[in-house]
Design a protein around this nucleic acid. Structure first.
Lengths: 134, 134
DNA sequence: CTTGACTCCGTACCATGGTACAGACCCGAT
DNA sequence: ATCGGGTCTGTACCATGGTACGGAGTCAAG
């Protein structure tokens, strides 16, 4: 899959075409130049495996909880080779991630309790409102 | 803190007054009746500890990843005592939560690697774009 | 009985991350 | 040569979860 159209890129990245265009508008993906020898004629833009890598990075970074603005910065850092800042960002997110994970684990615990408290029979009171108390 | 004003409720719940009003508009919190003997005169509404419980539940459930619509349903279920549906919802969220937690743990792992890969020196290439590759 | 803080209600606005057009245009297959 | 599907650009719209504001009313303290 070398030299793709936007539709193929979208397909390969598991996103919609409109999402790619949105990332382009946000500056996360660059818009490939059309061949210069016919600058005034519009033509179909072509995407390469690097674009796909970037797209995949964007999606993974989102899953890691980065916002699109932060991802934008990460992409700039990748180009500018500012290790210090890159590490800073990564560690910030790491700390947040640890907090999020442990919050989710607490929530998980509460849900397990709730679901077993609601286990018997089809009806009757089960302690939904107090499910997360302590 | 019995019989609070909306400001005190907000304070106690760690949210803004506007957020409470928003939850009321969404139907997550009911708007307390004004005393009936002066129905046409507007008066200041009063909130009790039950309202606070509900508010705290809303915030906890959000932290557990429920949307406000789901929380609305949970609150209805708490009233209607439909255990079956309550368990269903809890288990659905539980499954999603497990997926989210493990995704975040994978992301965490990648970030740890990234931050240590960017550890030496202030500049130079570090593998941001490939940080989440496998 | 006025002042200042708070409340009420309606409506408008915001950020985030998309999603959906419309009206051209381009391009490969028939 | 033309037809259908994909592309291009710009702009509009969407859901979620709030946040802000204006103008009026209320209420407790001084």
């Amino acid at each position: 899959m070398n030299d793709m159209t936007i539709g193929q890129l979208a397909e390969a990245g598991g996103v919609g075409v409109e999402t790619i265009r949105y990332y382009q508008r946000r500056g996360l993906l660059q818009v490939p130049e059309t061949p210069p020898h016919q600058a005034h004629t519009r033509t179909v833009r072509r995407y390469n495996p690097n674009d796909l890598k970037t797209l995949q990075f964007i999606r993974s970074a989102q899953r890691a909880g980065f916002t699109l603005s932060q991802i934008e910065e990460l992409l700039e850092l990748d180009a500018s080779q500012d290790r210090r800042r890159a590490r800073e960002i990564a560690e910030e997110r790491l700390a947040a991630l640890d907090a999020e994970i442990s919050a989710l684990q607490k929530a998980r615990h509460s849900l397990v309790k709730l679901s077993s408290a609601c286990a018997e029979g089809p009806a009757g009171p089960c302690p939904i409102l107090t499910a997360f108390d302590h």
